[in-house]
Design a protein around this nucleic acid. Structure first.
Length: 185
DNA sequence: GCAGAGATCAGCT
DNA sequence: GCTGATCTCTGCC
């Protein structure tokens, strides 16, 4: 399975967020492969988006949002959680990223259960910090190239039918923007 | 079933 | 020192 080309990420961040639905997120650790279908995303942009990490300008944490598109932005928050984003934006923006909020497990489900230390499959990857834990994604994947078959990348997946738009979750600014996208499998 | 606390890092005031 | 793109566990209805 080929990784999506860099041109996929060189478009409007909101468009990329919608198009990432149904794609397959793949994680390679040693000889193990873990993968899942992306079912929920959120778009975070730049100067027009007060909820974005990039809104306040460049910092040590968010600098990859200003870097090359098609790489991973992994950030640490609430003292104990990691979240993954794919850097994506059109030419008219200096920064932007798509937060991957939920996936449906496909390969390596046993590994995910081990990483998460739980038994129930329904709670495995249905939240941004849950899926990073299940896939063992940490700061080491910060800046990882998603367009190559590295330790973390994205490939084609299933066809998407109905995409639902919602306000984004867990933020207090920019709640007027309907930039949370979901599909049902 | 739902509300609240706790975990404890990076960035801002 | 406080706040957050969060999750889990506890306690009470």
């Amino acid at each position: 399975m080929k990784a999506l080309p860099r041109s996929f990420y060189e478009r409007n961040t909101v468009k990329v967020a919608k198009d990432l639905l149904g794609k397959t997120l793949v994680r390679k650790t040693g000889n193990k492969i873990i993968s899942g279908i992306i079912t929920e995303t959120e778009a975070y942009r730049h100067t027009d988006d007060p909820a974005s990490h990039a809104f306040g300008g460049l910092t040590g944490r968010n600098k990859v949002m200003f870097d090359q598109v098609g790489i991973a932005y992994v950030y640490f928050t609430y003292g104990m959680h990691y979240c993954v984003n794919a850097v994506a934006r059109s030419d008219s923006y200096e920064a932007g990223a798509v937060l991957i909020r939920a996936i449906t497990p496909k390969l390596g489900i046993n590994e995910m259960i081990k990483n998460r230390k739980i038994n129930s499959i329904s709670n495995l990857t249905n939240g941004p910090a849950k899926l990073t834990q299940a896939m063992n994604i940490t700061k080491k994947q910060y800046g990882e190239d998603l367009t190559k078959q590295s330790s973390l990348y994205i490939t084609e997946g299933v066809k998407t039918t109905k995409i639902k738009s919602n306000p984004r979750v867990g933020i207090k600014k920019g709640i007027d923007k309907m930039w949370n996208f979901k599909i049902e499998i």
